[in-house]
């Protein structure tokens, strides 16, 4: 079923790709919550350049004091492992590789 949408003078076609920022490259955002911790991937956003991406990330992902540092990386620069390799890469059971037989002193903190 389709409807005829009445056209008003001044109506114009909306370029959806342009209006959603899809014309801009995608950036992956990493935020460090506090000193001593690693930057952690928090999401992605569209931006025309690295500087704007960093500012957008500040506005989108750190509005509630989530972080003290931001990294942005072009999504196309991320190289990922192949999901098909999951068994071969990650499914080996080698419990002796876990240092579970040691007690970590409290003073060590994050490790």
């Amino acid at each position: 079923m389709s409807y005829d949408v009445p056209r008003m003078a001044g109506d114009h076609e909306v370029d959806v790709a342009a209006s959603t920022g899809a014309g801009h490259p995608l950036w992956e955002i990493f935020v460090r919550a506090s000193r001593g911790l690693n930057h952690v991937h928090v999401g992605s956003l569209h931006a025309p350049d690295a500087e704007t991406a960093t500012q957008h990330a500040r506005d989108v992902y750190t509005r509630r004091q989530e972080g003290v540092s931001i990294w942005v990386v072009k999504s196309t620069e991320i190289h990922a492992s192949d999901p098909h390799d999951e068994d071969a890469w990650f499914d080996s059971e080698k419990p002796y590789r876990h240092p579970t037989f040691y007690e970590i002193p409290d003073e060590v903190g994050h490790m």
Partner: peptide, 8 residues
């Protein structure tokens, strides 16, 4: 024009 700038 985009969500990011909207929030900004």
């Amino acid at each position: 024009p985009d969500l990011e700038e909207d929030i900004a």
